[in-house]
Computed example of a mutant assay.
Amino acid sequence: MTEKARRPLPHDFHPPVASFSVESDDVAPGGSLKQDQVFAGGNTSPQLRWSGFPEGTKSVAVTCYDPDAPTGSGFWHWTVFDLPVSVTELPAGAGSGSFPGLPSGAVHVRNDYGTRDFGGAAPPPGDGEHRYVFTVYAVDAEKLGVDADASPAVVGFNLRFHAIGRAQLVGTYEVPAEG
């Protein structure tokens, strides 16, 4: 199979905003996701922590997006928003199961699997390496103004106009071709 063209990252088309830091004990920048973050291997959202978000931040949103999915529009694995500004870390599993460590009032919308939680990596066998873009947004409002019935695209639209800062961490995952 020939190398496929890399699609742009989701923020390449957004206006510039302040940057800050996001780190993870589970996802190394540019490194392969752990089996826990794979759909068939645990389906567990990774631990994330962030710091240095800009003054005026009133809430936080977190997303995970695969721009390399063979859909023409990428694949949303996780979208949660309306996290209080006092929250600067989500433990592993906060977006999974009973949502341990997810603060009250946080809102999940459906991912592209159709569930309101973190859906792990599951690229097609032989499709090459996929990038998983974990983004933490600093938001200028306590509530983003959409509810759990919104699509990730609608949340992204609102974040486009309310994000005053953004931090991202990109992990990768690949399933070798069968046979």
Rank of each mutant, 00 (worst) to 15 (best):
P103Y: 10
L33R: 06
S51E: 07
G128K: 14
N43E: 01
H130K: 08
D127K: 08
T71Y: 13
K143F: 14
L90I: 07
R110E: 10
L48Q: 00
W50Q: 04
T71G: 07
S45F: 12
E89R: 12
G72I: 14
G101E: 09
R131Y: 10
A141K: 14
T135R: 04
T44N: 06
A121L: 11
V136R: 05
D112G: 05
G97K: 15
E129N: 05
D36S: 15
E142M: 07
V107T: 15
V62W: 02
P124Y: 09
D68L: 14
D82N: 14
V139E: 01
Q37P: 05
C64G: 01
T44P: 00
T63M: 07
Y65G: 06
W76H: 04
H130V: 08
N111C: 02
K34M: 07
A106V: 08
P125D: 03
R131Q: 01
K58I: 01
Q37I: 12
G97I: 15
A122V: 09
S32M: 12
R116T: 13
R49Y: 12
F39K: 15
K143L: 13
G74M: 10
L90Q: 03
V107W: 08
G31H: 13
Q37N: 12
H130Q: 01
P123M: 14
G52N: 11
F118W: 11
P84I: 13
T88A: 04
R131K: 04
G101K: 14
L90E: 03
G119Q: 01
L48V: 07
E55Y: 06
A121G: 00
Y65E: 02
V139R: 01
Y132C: 03
F39P: 05
A69F: 12
A138Y: 00
Q47T: 13
V85M: 05
V60A: 00
P100Y: 13
T57V: 09
D117P: 09
G114N: 03
G101P: 13
V38C: 02
T88M: 04
P91K: 07
Y65N: 03
C64H: 00
H108R: 13
T71Q: 10
D112A: 06
S104M: 06
G31N: 14
G30Y: 12
S98P: 04
P84D: 06
D117G: 14
A94L: 05
P67F: 11
